[in-house]
């Protein structure tokens, strides 16, 4: 029994620790973390809010940033029984942050099976997204990091 247990108790390398115990590293790289919240309702409404630190855009001009954030259908690919569209409703910015809001209505009888988020593909400087997703049944908060294979649920 002890031998079996000891097999799994071997030391982990730094990469695994970073992903398993992420809360310890979280504050070290706040300027490269985006925040995403998505709320889905029973009536088929989707409300999204994305907050991006300026740093993740690198040298991009503000007009290009607004163009990128405004292209909702490239950033969020919705997969449902009947296709439905997502659009940006507002983009605002402060000195160090951009905020974009999105909305979609897929209808009550149109099951939304997947939301694909392509932010990492579009922004090389983006290291991590902390996401809060709320459905009519549940709510989850997690982080997606370029350095980790799986979503990180231990944030606090």
């Amino acid at each position: 029994m002890i031998a079996i247990l000891s097999l799994g108790a071997c030391g982990k390398d730094n990469g695994v620790d970073y992903c398993d115990n992420h809360y310890g590293f979280h504050t070290d790289h706040l300027d490269t973390i985006a925040e995403l919240s998505i709320e889905l309702t029973d009536s088929g409404d989707l409300d999204g809010r994305l907050m991006m630190p300026q740093a993740v855009f690198g040298d991009m001009a503000e007009s290009d940033i607004r163009k990128l954030l405004g292209d909702a259908e490239s950033t969020f690919v919705l997969q449902s029984e009947v296709p439905c569209r997502i659009s940006v409703t507002n983009i605002s910015s402060t000195d160090r942050k951009f905020e974009a809001q999105y909305a979609a209505n897929c209808g009550t009888d149109n099951k939304l099976g997947r939301i694909s988020v392509t932010l990492f593909d579009q922004l090389d400087g983006l290291e991590e997204v902390v996401a809060s997703v709320t459905t009519s049944a549940t709510s989850k908060r997690f982080a997606i990091s370029r350095q980790c294979d799986a979503p990180i649920f231990r944030l606090d």
């Binding site: 998505i38 889905l40 099951k111 997947r114 939301i115 694909s116 988020v117 392509t118 990492f120 593909d121």
Partner: peptide
């Protein structure tokens, strides 16, 4: 329902 973050 899946939320998928693509990375290449």
């Amino acid at each position: 329902m899946q939320v998928v973050f693509t990375m290449g």
